[in-house]
Design a protein around this nucleic acid. Structure first.
Lengths: 267, 267
DNA sequence: TTCATTGTCTCGCCCTGCGAGACGCATTGC
DNA sequence: GCAATGCGTCTCGCAGGGCGAGACAATGAA
């Protein structure tokens, strides 16, 4: 997808569309920073307009100058907003210490995921001594529901109708990109319901990793969340896995209690 | 500052102003979520306009519905952009393992800060066994240069002229809000230059905490960064402090090497 | 110096974002 | 059940202002 930045379909105010396109272009250019030509190619704006908006975004802290001159990076204001966005219901702060001690104890990578429509979003990661990869990558990463352990766990919180819809929607990607068999996902979801955890569904990608995930029971009606981990297969013996599962379930249980504890009256 | 969301001074496109105002209002409302009346009060927009923009922002993932109906929260797209924004130069990913093992070893809170104009921004935090507070709070938090250990360390990377300017600019806040004596900041900055670390300047706020900070030497011309820690004073004996300083300097040194190692040719 | 490139400014057109108000559509009260 | 309240959307016409063309300024490279 070369120019996924532009979506002329919906009728948003044009300036909003343009601004978002600029942010996306900047994001795509990553560490390198985005130059004018990137913006001019990535959007259909004229040079003065690009500069105008760039200036505005810089003044508001949404963009900043790169140390490499004439390059722009995402600004720290986005960092603050993003931190707030990812802390929905103070969940991340609640989860952090648990993720920390899990990573410390087992050495793998531990994740907090939340449900976002038909995707799972990674709210936080804690890498232990030996960090490993995952579908979502880092904080803010998105995965289609079904791919990955946490993803399956979250899928299991949906009612069957919604679940089927989501799976159908992602079918092509799950098969093509992740090499995952849909029917096995449904099997895995069923397993979550009576085993209380999932190993996810093995696809052809990331074959050297293994992991498990559990859902976090949430009495307050917030959007569902899950804890998961990912480790080298060679380091996850059966006994070890049992330990990890227990630890995850314990953490999830404690978090549920904490959430319940700080249920505040809503304004 | 009740209505700091609106800044009519600069000549940004109005839609951009409005959008940012909406995001700020949403951010201010935090976990509770923002309702229509919040937006109508916090901005000077009409109801249809608010809805229009809200809808657009939702479609783009910059806002999302709260589980509490008729409330809006910051969307996960901001999380992704924020994560990218905070990872400038892959610095955060580089720092994470170091912060992790520091927190694991010493039990306090360890921070990665970056310079942003006249402020220090917290790029990452790692809380150890006993988490403590700090001026910046959490990821994305901003502190005026001069307040806090890392802040002083970053201040020391500026040339004297810029430093004086910044201090003058923050004078009122530093004295009034943080109860910090400017002249002592200058002293502390001088100390950084020959001792290679700083304890910051003690003000009247947060008297029960202590900490140290070191700068990260950066040959590549990125914006300056610093590592810092914060612990309960009672847990930071002199011997302990010496250990922490050494560990911080060691981590900073390794990071500098790593940065140097992955200096990539710029496009 | 000259040339190239970045960033800003002016200007006038006309697009389009805006506000007023009316209209479905929920949910809630009785 | 029916009214009432409030949320969210839609239409419409106006005019504010965002837009592009192009000139200009500032900076750096050759």
């Amino acid at each position: 997808m070369p120019t996924s930045a532009i979506r002329a379909d919906s009728a948003l105010p044009s300036t909003l569309r343009h601004v978002i396109a600029l942010l996306r272009v900047t994001s795509r250019c990553g560490v390198r920073g985005a130059g004018i030509e990137d913006y001019l190619e990535g959007t259909e704006l004229s040079r003065p307009t690009v500069y105008r908006l760039l200036k505005g975004l810089r003044e508001e802290g949404f963009l900043r100058h790169s140390p490499v001159r004439h390059r722009y990076l995402l600004g720290y204001e986005l960092l603050a907003l993003g931190a707030e966005a990812g802390n929905g219901g103070n969940l991340r702060e609640l989860a952090r210490p648990h993720l920390f001690s899990l990573a410390q104890q087992f050495g793998g990578s531990f994740y907090l995921f939340a449900l976002d429509g038909a995707h799972a979003v990674c709210l936080d990661v804690q890498n232990g001594a030996c960090a490993v990869g995952s579908f979502a990558g880092t904080m803010g990463g998105r995965v289609p529901l079904g791919a990955g352990q946490a993803s399956v766990a979250l899928l299991s919180t949906l009612d069957p109708a919604a679940r089927a819809l989501v799976l159908k929607q992602h079918q092509a990607r799950l098969c093509g990109e992740y090499h995952i068999d849909i029917s096995r996902i449904e099997q895995a979801v069923a397993d979550v319901h009576h085993a209380g955890f999932t190993r996810g569904v093995e696809g052809a990608s990331l074959p050297e990793f293994a992991g498990v995930a559990v859902t976090i029971a949430d009495p307050s009606g917030r959007s569902p969340t899950a804890l998961s981990c990912s480790m080298l297969k060679s380091q996850l013996s059966e006994a070890r896995e049992a330990e990890v599962i227990l630890a995850l379930q314990d953490a999830a249980g404690r978090m549920a209690q904490q959430i319940h504890g700080l249920l505040e009256p809503v304004s």
